[in-house]
């Protein structure tokens, strides 16, 4: 097992940041750690990496206890931090070389690894640039290169796409998938559910310092009652009988948003026909109809009663 965390408790005074947090990460997987801001994702990562003191619990990495001076374990870990952690006085190449040099002492090996990292994040044309000259997206790519240049077996990425443009975000996500294909085990923390859905083979949802649900994307969505979202565009919604729709069987909720009718229904039922019949009876004309599967936000909403982005 790559990571095994048991009963981790971390307090800041009266505030419990991690409340008997448990986590298991298997070799070769991409674990998405999803949760709203302040749910304890970064605290959990910092404890796992032995940066933060914790009050209780055990942390094993590669089946060995993780301690601040477990250099043999640290050698195989790469971290991409939430904030860009580079030296403004060093060029792109020098930054990557410096952080790679903290792991790899052989100059020739390091030269090769740095070149590969620059190539991997697509910063070849910017290797002599100073960080201040880079855009936000390029800076994030540099941040990633500094964390992975030494080609670690375990890579932890803590919200690496915050404040990044869509193009750079896609680039970063594709890069992470590529690293995983090359054999790295990955922990990816984010509060963007779409990103986690896109790259994670398994997802852990966090709230208030503990994991409240864990499984594959499909497994998580099966945990909740909500089966699909039916969206109907109403051409003459004036006389809509919302209470009548809510009273239909297998309907969880119906909500009108201007000309849109958004209905959440239970899983595995043929719910569309009774809804259409009901609207036909009320002589309401329908423009477009489309259906969506539930999102991770629905999972979070159903478990905690609040939105993931709250």
């Amino acid at each position: 097992m790559v990571i095994n965390v048991k009963n981790l408790v971390k307090r800041y005074g009266d505030l419990i940041a991690l409340d008997h947090f448990n986590l298991e990460v298997q070799e070769g997987e991409v674990l998405g750690l999803l949760g709203p801001n302040g749910s304890g994702k970064t605290t959990a990562i910092n404890c796992i990496l032995s940066l933060l003191k914790y009050d209780k619990g055990t942390i094993d990495i590669f089946d060995q206890p993780m301690t601040p001076d477990a250099y043999h374990l640290k050698r195989d870990i790469g971290i991409v931090m939430q904030n860009v952690a580079v030296f403004n006085e060093l060029t792109v190449y020098e930054n990557i070389d410096y952080f790679c040099g903290l792991y790899i002492s052989d100059k020739q090996t390091r030269k090769k690894l740095v070149a590969e990292a620059i190539d991997f994040v697509g910063l070849n044309d910017f290797s002599k640039f100073y960080p201040k000259k880079l855009s936000g997206g390029l800076l994030r790519r540099l941040n990633i290169a500094c964390g992975i240049a030494h080609q670690p077996k375990l890579i932890i990425l803590d919200e690496p796409t915050v404040a990044v443009d869509p193009q750079s975000r896609n680039n970063i996500l594709e890069g992470i998938q590529k690293l995983n294909q090359q054999g790295a085990t990955i922990i990816y923390t984010s509060h963007y559910m779409e990103e986690v859905e896109q790259i994670a083979s398994r997802i852990a949802i966090m709230d208030k310092g503990k994991i409240i649900a864990m499984g594959t994307n499909e497994e998580l969505k099966k945990m909740i009652k909500s089966g699909e979202h039916i969206n109907l565009e109403l051409l003459n919604p004036g006389d809509l009988d919302l209470a009548g729709i809510n009273a239909l069987p297998h309907i969880i909720s119906a909500e009108r948003r201007d000309h849109q009718l958004v209905i959440k229904s239970e899983r595995g039922k043929n719910n569309l026909i009774p809804i259409l019949d009901h609207l036909k009876d009320q002589q309401i004309a329908i423009g477009k109809i489309y259906s969506e599967p539930p999102t991770l936000n629905d999972v979070f909403l159903e478990i905690t009663g609040k939105e993931l982005r709250d």
Binding site: L51, I79, M81, F87, F99
Partner: peptide, 18 residues
């Protein structure tokens, strides 16, 4: 530059096997 609680690069240095 080497204190994890004072700078991000400090945190990164603290995570390295040095």
């Amino acid at each position: 530059a080497i204190q994890a609680d004072l700078s991000d690069v400090g945190a990164r240095i603290n995570l390295a096997p040095t």
